[in-house]
Design a protein around this nucleic acid. Structure first.
Lengths: 175, 175
DNA sequence: ATAAGTTTAGACCGAACGTTACAAACTAAC
DNA sequence: GTTAGTTTGTAACGTTCGGTCTAAACTTAT
């Protein structure tokens, strides 16, 4: 949560020791280093994201899956009093200032979301839920970019109502 | 440029002394402190933004003004080899972790862009360029959010082609 | 009960942080 | 040429940074 909210360099060892209630000896014994723990956190976030996307994919309707995604997005953005946003989106902003290993985790996580959108659109087209006019690649990018802006602006710029306007417009893409 | 690209805390005094080719004595004499210079940089960016918006507003057609905004956005994002993105958008992501003075500069700058969109839409409706179905408030937010995602994803996630897809869709709002 | 292995606390490390102090080096005015 | 005022380079400040080391405190197995 600390890394998620404050990022890597703004999170200090002192912060981590506070929140874990560990002393240095125990921390380094348990986690290796600050960077190791950060990678663990990123990896866990990636896994959680994949689980969520898989659960959505398992829904009966692909357009319902996308709609549910955005409903959850707004709900979690609104209810999070810490205003952490999305760990992956937060990282994406400054992606180039991290090393290759970290970059690849973040990019992979982001890509999994865009791919989820693309697959849902493709499936929706096959099933006749979504018009053949809707390009899976293009519209996956449009949905993804909407998620990005909701996550960014949800961290202290836009209120719930404004965020809902963004989500509504995104959903109109696949209707 | 340093603050723009790396943010406040990831920019060190050593970085600033390097790039200004000053020594500590001269730096503090010239700028007061790291934070003072940061505020100067933010303020200047706000002014530059306002000038740009005013120039666009002076164009003969409001819908052309919006279109030109997005053309410039893509162009500057693509041509910037530093991948700095937009200073204001970069700040917006972590807006709540800064003090009130800094927050207010950033919010004011962001608001001026959204207001520009709103005013252009209102003017376009009056002139019959833009349909009366297009809500100025809602669509200003949609255009603003598109600008945000282009700026975020332009910093190392999306290529030019993908960014253009986002811009195209935004412009369809006012067509 | 004792030995082996693990976990803990906390002193300590060198480096980097932003900032201050101050004297030397300049510049300008008369 | 002397003086007053500014600008410069540099040493030093206290703090925080992430990380290491070690010895004491615990667990566990026999």
């Amino acid at each position: 949560n600390l890394f998620w909210r404050k990022g890597y360099s703004d999170t200090s060892m002192a912060d981590l020791l506070d929140v874990t209630a560990l002393t240095k000896g125990s921390f380094y014994n348990a986690f290796g280093s600050k960077r190791d723990l950060f990678i663990q956190a990123l990896t866990r976030y990636e896994q959680d994201t994949r689980v969520m996307l898989q659960e959505l994919s398992a829904l009966d309707s692909p357009s319902t899956a996308i709609q549910t995604f955005f409903e959850g997005l707004i709900a979690s953005t609104t209810s999070d009093t810490d205003k952490k946003g999305c760990f992956t989106v937060n990282m994406l902003l400054c992606i180039t200032s991290y090393d290759e290993e970290i970059q690849s985790i973040v990019r992979r996580t982001a890509q999994s979301v865009e791919t989820f959108f693309k697959q849902m659109i493709e499936l929706g087209r096959v099933r006749g839920e979504i018009s053949e006019d809707v390009s899976p690649e293009k519209n996956a990018k449009l949905l993804f970019s909407t998620m990005v802006s909701i996550r960014v602006l949800g961290r202290g710029t836009y209120d719930t109502k404004s965020l809902e306007i963004l989500a509504e417009r995104a959903l109109r893409l696949i209707k």
